[in-house]
Design a protein around this nucleic acid. Structure first.
Length: 445
RNA sequence: GACCCUAUGGUCUAGCGGUUAGGACACCACCCUUUCACGGUGGGAGCCCGGGUUCGAGUCCCGGUAGGGUCGCCA
């Protein structure tokens, strides 16, 4: 039987990084097995779930590259969808739930109580065969020992999560439920429900959770919890995917950087770890740097321009060739695009933000005449390119009897305001004679 | 409180009865170098604790401890 897996998020207005990884594991499993990846929106709470909140999920999955074979095409619950097992919004599936509840009622497997409908839960422990965790024998908690039955339809007529989740998985032909371990305890209820409907439950695979660096639960406000952070800060989607898959899964070949096709080929459920992982921003940033270094030029430019614009630096005021040349000097030097405005902002703004400590150190009484000599040499360099600039600087240093570094650092500071940045000679070439001389003059004032 | 899951350096992990316990991030030092980044070399740092089983245990079993999860007319 062909694999059918699903990601069934609730539109809360943000996509949790743990949810993103759950979606990723589902997607990888579908692609690995040649099965189908289905997206279903659990928008049962009409008051809270807006179309914008659905867009956050759709856009997040699209950004990650997790295309779905069945599911909504837009955030409109009544809008178009692909696949023949819809609707794919729970808000549109009321009739299905009602029919299933009536079936349970008529067979005496559920009963009405104070206006709500409760499911007659088994009093026996339920055994779950989990593809990741192994066989789990779930005993009743003390609370459940008192009353194991649980509500499946609220007194206001709204069906409850456990019911709709199972009905949808059943009717959509889901073969493998891959979800967070926080659902492991709930699984007993779900298994009982499947059995009550007279079918075998799907295979379960509960994946460990992602925790904060301090080991606490990662909630909405915690750093890195929202996928939108990575989109906004210009992370490379493939890097985020690569990092997330390594949280709880390993290719077991001492490799860290793997392309999506390599992941699809290698990913499988039994290799998924059973223990929670902590989120490590430093490693994600390293991974992102790895991907930034090898990004195709056009995509690199695009993400650069986006990051600069976000910081208020408009690149479209400059010639395209200048922008590209400027960005080329930054390639391979950064871990995230968020660093770019601070790193390359001097190309696109004349008001430099000088590092005060460096000013004291570089623009000394001793260095000023040296810098003046260099300025005069740069005024005559022809052509004004990195090779001649380097020769010119080294020549001047030689004439002054100092090491090149004595001139390099003040020059960098005068032209960029910073002590670190792109290759000096290359950045001077890109800036051009006019700006370079003007900035040296300004520094000498 | 009950129930469930988990436990290798600070972090992510490899290991699946006999290894000098391997790799990656981070950190430190040095090299490269105009800065930064990259790259290279080296370094510090680990099997939660206690019992078993076994000739031998990070690896298997039991018990603690610790962390996480679930016990809703939330999803």
């Amino acid at each position: 039987m062909s694999v059918r897996v699903r990601f069934a998020p609730s539109p809360t207005g943000f996509l949790h990084v743990g949810g993103a990884r759950t979606a990723l594991f589902n997607w990888l499993y579908a692609r690995h097995t040649g099965g189908k990846f289905i997206l279903r929106v659990e928008d049962t709470d009409a008051a809270r779930n807006t179309q914008e909140a659905v867009d956050v999920i759709l856009n997040g999955l699209r950004w990650l590259g997790l295309n779905w074979d069945e599911g909504p095409l837009t955030s409109d619950a009544t809008g178009p969808a692909k696949g023949d097992r819809g609707p794919y919004f729970q808000s549109q599936r009321r009739a299905n739930y009602q029919r299933r509840v009536e079936a349970l009622l008529s067979r005496g497997l559920a009963y009405e109580r104070e206006g709500a409908i409760k499911f007659k839960m088994s009093r026996e422990p339920v055994v779950i065969d989990d593809l990741i965790v192994g066989q789990v024998r779930r005993e009743l908690t003390d609370r459940e020992a008192e009353d194991p039955d649980f509500v499946i339809v609220r007194s206001d007529g709204q069906p409850v999560f456990h019911l709709v989740n199972v009905v949808d998985d059943l009717e959509m032909g889901i073969t493998h439920v891959i979800r967070g371990e926080d659902h492991l305890s709930n699984t007993a209820k779900h298994v009982a429900l499947f059995q009550a409907f007279g079918v075998h439950p799907p295979h379960y695979a509960h994946i460990p959770l992602i925790l904060n660096p301090d080991g606490t639960k990662m909630s909405k406000r915690d750093q890195g919890a929202s996928l939108s952070t990575y989109v906004e800060e210009g992370y490379v989607a493939e890097a985020v995917v690569n990092y997330l898959v390594l949280l709880g899964w390993s290719p077991k070949e001492n490799r860290e950087v793997l392309s999506v096709p390599e992941l699809v080929e290698r990913f499988d459920l039994p290799q998924v770890l059973r223990h929670n992982a902590r989120f490590d921003m430093a490693k994600l940033q390293w991974m992102n740097g790895e991907y930034m270094r090898t990004l195709p030029a056009d995509r690199f430019y695009e993400l650069c321009v986006h990051a600069l614009a976000k910081a208020g630096l408009q690149t479209n005021a400059f010639p395209l060739a200048y922008v590209k040349a400027a960005l080329d000097t930054c390639k391979g030097k950064l871990k995230t695009f968020a660093e770019l405005p601070g790193y390359a902002g001097f190309y696109f703004a004349d008001a430099l933000d000088f590092d005060p400590a460096a000013v004291v150190q570089s623009f000394t009484a001793e260095n000023r005449p040296r810098l003046q000599r260099l300025r005069d040499a740069f005024a005559k360099v022809e052509p004004f390119n990195y090779a001649f600039l380097e020769a010119g600087l080294k020549n001047t240093a030689g004439e002054l009897g100092v090491k090149p570094g004595v001139l390099v650092h003040p020059t960098r500071l005068a032209c960029t305001g910073k002590t670190a940045g792109p290759s000096l000679y290359h950045l001077l070439e890109v800036l051009g004679r006019e700006k370079v001389l003007a900035r040296l003059d300004a520094a000498l004032k």
